[in-house]
Structure formats: structure tokens, C-alpha cells
């Protein structure tokens, strides 16, 4: 599903990712951990072609990400749902409209959008909050909104960049339960986190990045 082949990404002379080799299989749940600046966000940005690698090859399914022509980038991004670290919710749109955004992009009809968004609001436990604006919701609720938006168009892969950052432990576990459910439904999930308690508790594959290099890749059952 995802393959990094000797990928190097440098910002100036500083490597953000250094000779990264890895494969993530279909329907896997993977934790990406490591200190701040280890290269976790760069890893995600490379996957959605928000950045180009300095060296190496990246594959998502059969797509060679680095060689993808500009007009095919939307096609790649429709395969990948992203929970951004800074959420990237549109503050002048309601929760319903934010979740509907990927569905509008892929050209769903208003009735299909309504049905799907209601379904997602129920799934993330926010039924009835669709008419509210982001400023009216708590941090945990906003995280759920971004997860709902990320999976709205049924992507094959979900990238979650620190989805439990700044959340209390109870809310964090709620988010993890949701991500596990999404994974169980067949979506490949890659989650970047600092929260080692969660990583330890869930017996999933853990990849540790440090200064751009993979220092550990543990598959646990």
C-alpha cells in the first residue's frame, strides 16, 4: 500500500528524512513515533505530495508519488484522508460544511452528502452538532470533526498527525477507539504521536523516527 524506497528529504542541508526504507501493508495500523523534529510530519507531507523527496521513491498503491504529474495530485489526495496537526478546519463553515468538503470535491450530490455527513457525525459522536461552527466546539470535538472529514470520502489510507495532542486522557482514548474502528473497517491508518502510553496499550506496529532515520520498527501482535 505505502512504500518508501531510500527516501531522503532535506531542507537546505538539514535532512528531515534520511534514507528511509519502509513498507506499510493494506489495512495496517501503524504508529509513527519519535521526538519533535524527527520527521513524522515530513513523512506525511511527502505521502500527499505536499513536498517532493530530495532522493528516493515513494509509492502509494501503484502511484509513483514523486513522478506524479500535477493534474494527478488530486487523484492521489483523494486516496488519502489526513487529520492535520493544526486541524485545518474552515472557521467560517459549519461542522456539517467542513465534513462535507471532501464529498463536494469528489462531486457527490447534496442528498448523498447529507446522508454521508449525518452518518459520519453519528460515527464520531457529534450528532446534532452539524449546524455549529468550529469556535463553538471543544478540542476533542474538533479532533473528531477532522477525523470525520478525513474519512468522509472513504480513503484507502488515513494519516493522523498527533490527533490526541493537547487532549485529556479520556478524550484521547475516545479518539483512539474511533481510529481503531476506522482501521477495523478496512482503512490503513498511520498515526503520528508522542503519547507512548497509547502506543504501549494498543498492540500495533510501531515505527520510531529520530533525526530523520528509522531507529526501530516493531511489529507486535
Amino acid at each position: 500500500m505505502i512504500k518508501f524506497d531510500k527516501v531522503v528529504k532535506k531542507f537546505g542541508s538539514t535532512p528531515a528524512l534520511d534514507n528511509v526504507d519502509l513498507e506499510i501493508n493494506d489495512k495496517e495500523f501503524v504508529f509513527l513515533t519519535g521526538p519533535t523534529g524527527a520527521g513524522k510530519t515530513t513523512f506525511f507531507r511527502l505521502l500527499i505530495r505536499d513536498l517532493l523527496p530530495t532522493k528516493g521513491k515513494i509509492f502509494v498503491g501503484d502511484l509513483d508519488v514523486a513522478k506524479l504529474p500535477s493534474h494527478k495530485i488530486p487523484h492521489l489526495r483523494k486516496k488519502i484522508g489526513v487529520v492535520f496537526q493544526d486541524l485545518k478546519l474552515l472557521l467560517d463553515r459549519t461542522i456539517f460544511e467542513n465534513i462535507a468538503l471532501p464529498l463536494e470535491i469528489i462531486g457527490k450530490t447534496p442528498s448523498e452528502i447529507k446522508r454521508r455527513v449525518d452518518e459520519l457525525l453519528f460515527l464520531v459522536g457529534l450528532s446534532g452538532l452539524g449546524v455549529r461552527f468550529p469556535r463553538e466546539l471543544s478540542g476533542g470535538e474538533l479532533q473528531r470533526v477532522t477525523i470525520a472529514r478525513a474519512i468522509a470520502a472513504d480513503p484507502q489510507i488515513l494519516l493522523a498527525d498527533e490527533p490526541t495532542g493537547n487532549l485529556d486522557i479520556g478524550t484521547s482514548w475516545g479518539i483512539m477507539k474511533l481510529l481503531s474502528e476506522i482501521n477495523e473497517r478496512g482503512t490503513t491508518v498511520v498515526m503520528a504521536t508522542h503519547n507512548m502510553e497509547i502506543v504501549a496499550a494498543l498492540k500495533k506496529r510501531k515505527i520510531v523516527l529520530d533525526k530523520g532515520k528509522i531507529t526501530k520498527d516493531e511489529k507486535r501482535i
Partner: peptide, 16 residues
């Protein structure tokens, strides 16, 4: 501009 950036990252094409 934030909306444009978000739409771009969510896979919206240029004309969309």
C-alpha cells in the same frame, strides 16, 4: 487563503 490551502490538500482540482 486557508480555505484554498485546505481544499488543495483535500484533493480539490484547480478549477474546483
Amino acid at each position: 487563503k486557508d480555505e484554498i490551502e485546505t481544499m488543495r490538500l483535500l484533493g480539490a482540482g484547480r478549477w474546483k
